[in-house]
Amino acid sequence: MKKTDTKIFTKEFKTNLESLLTTINESFENINNGGCAYFAQLLYPKLKELTDDIEILFFLQSEDLNFIQKEKEYYNEVKDSDDDLKEAGFVISHVILKCEEYYIDTNIIDKTIPNYFEKKYNHHLIGSISFDVLSTLIDYNEWNEAFDINDLSKIEKVIDKYFNKEVTIWDRVKIKLEENK
């Protein structure tokens, strides 16, 4: 697929992407428990090749709404400078992608994820960051160690296979078999 001005989220595209998320979640433990930023870092370039309507969003977790408000205000002060964002010291609790009108987490594609995260987990959407800032934050943030970062190369291979060709059911089975070796 090549970048286009038309929307990429057709019913078929969404179904295929949901299939990828299912494969990832069934194949790799704790992807959404310490692996969300890494997953966003791997998936973002593939979607960016198809559309410019994509963002990387980050969340902070807190029940203290005053703290969240102060963090949002601080974000608004530094958001226009990647260098300032890299040095801001945000302790990110979650990362997702927004592509067109859909939010993409490691296990779901939906139009209302930020509201759900806030109500269920006290994860509050702070704002968007560039790919460069995400890469820096991955290097300097402390992530939940439940996710095994040694799985990243395998996850990248699965994502590459989904985006480089139409994946059949047999391809998905072979991907799972390769991952279990």
Results as ranks from 00 to 15, higher is better:
residue 52 D to T: 12
residue 66 N to A: 13
residue 127 G to K: 10
residue 104 I to A: 07
residue 91 V to T: 11
residue 124 H to L: 01
residue 80 D to N: 15
residue 126 I to C: 05
residue 99 C to K: 02
residue 119 K to S: 13
residue 116 Y to G: 00
residue 85 L to Y: 05
residue 98 K to R: 14
residue 69 Q to S: 15
residue 95 V to D: 01
residue 78 V to P: 00
residue 59 F to M: 07
residue 72 K to R: 13
residue 85 L to C: 02
residue 125 L to Y: 06
residue 53 D to I: 00
residue 104 I to K: 02
residue 113 I to W: 03
residue 87 E to T: 04
residue 54 I to E: 02
residue 112 T to Y: 11
residue 55 E to D: 13
residue 97 L to Q: 09
residue 64 D to N: 15
residue 95 V to P: 01
residue 55 E to V: 01
residue 83 D to I: 11
residue 76 N to I: 01
residue 74 Y to S: 02
residue 99 C to L: 04
residue 88 A to M: 10
residue 74 Y to H: 13
residue 61 Q to N: 14
residue 90 F to N: 05
residue 119 K to P: 07
residue 83 D to C: 00
residue 112 T to Q: 10
residue 58 F to T: 03
residue 126 I to M: 05
residue 68 I to V: 15
residue 117 F to V: 00
residue 54 I to P: 02
residue 89 G to I: 10
residue 109 I to V: 13
residue 110 D to Q: 08
residue 125 L to S: 02
residue 75 Y to G: 01
residue 62 S to C: 09
residue 69 Q to A: 15
residue 87 E to R: 14
residue 71 E to T: 13
residue 81 S to G: 04
residue 96 I to F: 05
residue 85 L to P: 00
residue 102 Y to I: 04
residue 114 P to K: 05
residue 97 L to D: 08
residue 80 D to L: 05
residue 103 Y to F: 15
residue 61 Q to P: 00
residue 48 K to L: 09
residue 117 F to G: 00
residue 77 E to L: 12
residue 47 L to E: 06
residue 72 K to A: 11
residue 124 H to D: 00
